[in-house]
Nucleic acid binder design. Structure first.
Lengths: 243, 243
DNA sequence: CGGTTATTTGACCGACTTCAACTGCAGTGG
DNA sequence: CCACTGCAGTTGAAGTCGGTCAAATAACCG
């Protein structure tokens, strides 16, 4: 088993071919990670955007809250995901970063990101690409929330996570770890907890997939894909460029 | 009246202070715009991402479609908006750009964008900021679709457009041009056309605002803001950095 | 084991969708 | 000038999806 921090080079190489020297510089960015417990806040709205966040292990989410407590998850960050790499160009954070599961996260001063990007042009391009892809995923979520039914949207989210998890070698093709509570899924999909629970039952009944014991198990990938109308193009994996 | 292409410098200076030399280089990017009729496709999913898009006049939207024809608008682009400035790092477009109203749009080869960014570091930073802000808006839309009611979401969208229109001097504080059909609004908000129509009636009944003859008129800004729980922080205007 | 949190189930309700028809208006051509 | 057409918007009725309230398990944890 490779050490878990290998998710970072694995993820970035999904998108950008890098030389060993680039990877060496990259690995120095993620030194001295911090550990967070489940539900702990990694960063809060209003904070200055002077730190980039690199997830090494576990799962993190972006959230926004409404005054009356309604919560929406804006993005799920898996090991290898790097966010807010360029965010210093904005003033202050307008969302929260919250640990979904116990996790290890590197919080990197923007100055170090900049130095790193300046030293290695390939990394500069790679960082840009990470940011663009995160934005593309957010747009796909807009479609998910706006125009897909609860079951379609759930299936779509689980397809996305499958592909992303496989990308960082955390899935084995038919299963992957899924540390989300049902409340998290509901907050990703804009559903009530209760309706999400019933939608999960429907998914189970379809025979395509089931979530149990913190793990997603896929029994019929094609069925799941067609339930969701899933196409992986928006994830912009390098391997899919050929198509 | 200033020429309409002034929306570009107006918009970018909302976010980034620029010197005259920067503005001169910028204005050369937007030479030779193309005109599009309402509903015309500016770019389609699957196209190579080798052109950046700068809106000079009129309104453009990003859309995604589901196989059965359901449509979701992912973003509304106003005069001055510049999108896909860095998108050459991705392979192919995964969404469409569609003219909402008759419009003029500059389609700029990525190579010229890069040359421009290389020549003027301030523009490089400004372009980055534009991209980050577009992503921040997309995340706010996720919240809008996921957790706000139809009326709240409608009010929120109209607040956002008010602030953005004022930013490029197309609004006068209590009115702004709104060339969207009701179907467009419905596709922004993930609603059926009919329910959107009824939600518009409800908004009118509230006395806060009314849409008529291609124009949005605001009668009670504070009321509209509190209906929507609107806060402009996610737009990251430079003027709001002070707060 | 007791206490807390996560999940499941039932009954009911409301927001939003669908289907269908009608209005108002602008353009077009007889 | 006035039918005719086509599109945007409006209204009504009925149905469905998803939300809310309430309570019963089931899993987790010290």
């Amino acid at each position: 088993m490779r050490p878990p921090t290998d998710a970072v080079p694995a993820k970035i190489r999904l998108h950008t071919p890098l030389e060993p020297a680039d990877l060496a510089v990259l690995s120095e960015l993620a030194l001295r990670p911090r550990a967070f417990a489940a539900q702990e806040l990694v960063a809060a709205a209003g904070d200055p955007l002077d730190l980039a966040t690199i997830v090494l292990e576990g799962m993190v989410c972006r959230t926004k809250l409404l005054p009356d407590g309604r919560r929406q998850i804006l993005a799920l960050l898996l090991p290898g995901d790097m966010v807010d790499l360029h965010a210093s160009v904005l003033g202050r954070r307008d969302d929260n970063l919250e640990a979904v599961s116990p996790c290890r996260v590197a919080l990197v001063p923007q100055s170090r990101v900049l130095a790193c990007a300046a030293a290695r042009p390939a990394l500069h391009e790679a960082f840009m690409r990470e940011a663009m892809i995160e934005a593309a995923i957010a747009r796909e979520w807009v479609l998910n929330l706006g125009r897909r039914s609860a079951l379609e949207a759930l299936a779509h989210l689980l397809c996305e996570l499958k592909v992303r998890m496989d990308g960082v070698e955390l899935g084995d093709g038919s299963r992957y770890p899924l540390p989300l509570r049902q409340q998290h899924l509901a907050d990703c999909l804009g559903l009530s907890l209760i309706h999400l629970n019933r939608t999960l039952s429907k998914l189970k009944a379809s025979g395509c997939a089931i979530i149990r014991a913190g793990e997603m198990r896929i029994d019929d990938w094609n069925g799941l894909v067609s339930l969701a109308h899933f196409g992986a193009d928006y994830l912009h994996f390098r391997s899919s460029l050929a198509a």
